[in-house]
Design a protein around this nucleic acid. Structure first.
Lengths: 228, 228
DNA sequence: CGCACCCTTGAAAGAGATCAAAGGGAGTGG
DNA sequence: CCACTCCCTTTGATCTCTTTCAAGGGTGCG
């Protein structure tokens, strides 16, 4: 397999961070690069786990289903993030689904190799553990927010979080494509409610929207809204 | 420091599971045993992290606060469980509080020693990582439930979960003390609502309550309720 | 005995969800 | 180029579940 470089920032790319010296050469023989179109499924909740994924470009939503219609988006993954690590536990099936929100390029590392690496590579294991620890904290914070914050506050919070994570394009828009439906699923509400709240925020000149891109005009106001 | 044994079941006690051979002697020189009375705080959200705790007996609630009045119980810890590991991440403060629900005996291991152990003890690190992975899955499942399930279903689910975790006493009651307020905080609802739902369940002969102990009379019915 | 605190229940208010329907485009076929 | 359909957006109107408020009833304790 050829050793094709990916163009991640070393600071932020989990693959790079995990590729602590001794792992890098080995992993290059075990990773398989490929890409996904917008809307394509990376894996589905309940699928048997066969490996983990590192994203080189694009955005992926990680979501948990409820019945046929409803879902909750647990996390967005972007360039440099890992996806599928939630399958590493005891269960042999993914507890979540992952779907491309925009065209995605990534690499796949089969589980067997990854777990073998974990057994011998202490630094890798440590990095991964810390990563889990962070995600757990995140998750529980979100849980509390979902329970105690009203919808408007949750959406304000989500917008700030997303802006932090994805950054702004030069015209001030959050650098990701996010439909109303996904925003709703992320904030644990319905399409209509998410829509209405967004309309309010536009009226109040707190955000601006064109197409699927969202610009934060007044971050301070959003921070206030978060608190209620 | 003396090497006082604790009386956990080797199968279930995290300290035992983590005490993989080479660690056990070392840890005995670094742990400090003590006990808590009912209602006492083990540590508070925002406190600087100074170590982790292993529970020998009793029950602890791990909770996250919201404002002054509200909280969300993230998890219950019992004999054999770890508490305080959520502080291991990058932040130097606990993201949650821990409070004794009944008299608790436990041992404390200072963070410095624990982290040093993680650096050299691969099996320990691996066990801890898997533990985080499981907790993350749990957390995200709960998150979805909190968003999509109505209160009655959440309470039904909580009762089944608690029964699984704590088991039954010989008279069929769940082997833990759980006030209405804590049940409410655990299921993300208010005292009054939790109370009303419990009353319904009693009327429907699904559960029986005496004092603070709850007995599940009809688990199948609870499982049905979970689904709505 | 009386005060304080929690349990218990009722009634009202509110936030969101659900339902329903009108208003756009964008693509398709005539 | 227009008519038509399909699907997503938008908006209004209900409706339901929960929360909130409030007040009565126990019970333990000083």
């Amino acid at each position: 397999m050829k050793k094709d470089k990916h163009d991640c920032d070393l600071q932020t790319c989990m693959l790079c961070r995990l590729c602590i010296k001794e792992w890098l050469p080995a992993v290059d023989n075990h990773r398989k690069n490929f890409s996904l179109k917008k809307g394509q499924l990376l894996f589905r909740e309940g699928d048997p786990v066969n490996g983990i994924y590192f994203i080189f470009s694009g955005t992926v939503k990680v979501h948990k289903h409820w019945g046929e219609e409803k879902e909750l988006i647990v996390r967005f993954a972007r360039k440099g993030d890992i996806v599928g690590h939630r399958g590493v536990g005891a269960e042999m099936m993914y507890p979540v689904s992952a779907t491309a929100l925009e065209p995605v390029t990534l690499c796949f590392i089969d589980l067997e190799f990854f777990q073998a690496s974990l057994k011998v590579n202490h630094a890798l294991l440590h990095e991964l553990m810390m990563f889990y620890a962070r995600e757990l904290q995140e998750s529980e914070k979100n849980m509390r927010n979902l329970v105690h914050m009203p919808v408007k506050a949750r959406i304000a919070h989500a917008l700030l979080t997303l802006r932090d994570k994805f950054g702004n394009t030069e015209d001030g828009a959050i650098d990701m494509t996010l439909g109303r439906q996904d925003l709703a699923s992320f904030t644990g509400t319905t399409y209509e409610t998410a829509f209405r709240v967004m309309s309010e925020l536009i009226q109040e000149n707190v955000i601006a929207v064109s197409g699927k891109s969202i610009a934060v005009l007044n971050a301070e106001k959003l921070q206030e809204l978060e608190k209620l």
